[in-house]
Design a protein around this nucleic acid. Structure first.
Lengths: 112, 112
DNA sequence: GAGAAGCGCAACTTTTCGGTTGCACATCGC
DNA sequence: GCGATGTGCAACCGAAAAGTTGCGCTTCTC
């Protein structure tokens, strides 16, 4: 999967959050975040789902830029990619920053 | 909506991310994050969707704990709630921390 | 070379999601 | 009191998501 030199899709916040919004995928990502690349077979081993279901989830994660895959021999290994997570956190930061600003202004107003 | 004294649902990370994984909802939340509570009519005014569609999205956000609503007179006003965002960021922090640890260990190994 | 392991692809089923429409009901303002 | 405003609820629809099954193709391994 993932035609070799096609750039990894831009980490669109909505797509990233959507990818994270499924417990199977969140669990896969958490597993992979230890830096160890794993094959589909390995990742499906301890899952209650079919290998194909896991494969689909991995592709969703890949399209969101959260993992990358390379085919080596007969197996394709998936690896964690940190960038989108950083961008997602940056996005959430802007949201909570706006909130904090609003709070600060309100407080200033109240305290005279 | 939201029976008065029922505790706001626990901010389950999966539910929060799923709620954020839609551009209409993300946009609604961004709007509300300025601290100003708004009625459904206000929030639907500048949207290309039906009032009912907006209402549904607001309920999704509410179930994820991202907003709260109170009925005042004939209108029900929705307000931003910061807690789930903080928890979501905390979750992402654990993921990226695990990644950083893995990187550090790898680096240490390589540098002897 | 033969069997096993690891995948990919395609078809199909079942829910879930995002949206709309229609209608009834409460409330506000004059 | 009455029209306008703001909602809530329910039914319905189409598209996408989640998952399964079946099958064929490579790649190891002995």
């Amino acid at each position: 999967m993932s035609s070799p030199n096609l750039p990894v899709p831009a980490a669109n916040p909505v797509a990233v959050f959507a990818a994270l919004g499924d417990r199977t995928r969140l669990s896969l990502l958490t597993t992979l975040s230890d830096g160890q690349a794993r094959s589909i077979a390995m990742l499906s081993a301890d899952a209650r789902l079919t290998r194909q279901a896991i494969t689909k989830h991995l592709h969703v994660l890949e399209n969101a830029g959260l993992v990358s895959s390379i085919r080596t021999g007969r197996e394709s290994r998936f690896a964690y990619r940190p960038e989108p997570i950083a961008e997602a956190m940056a996005y959430l930061d802007t949201v909570s920053a706006q909130w904090d600003d609003a709070l600060a202004r309100l407080r200033a107003l109240v305290e005279e």
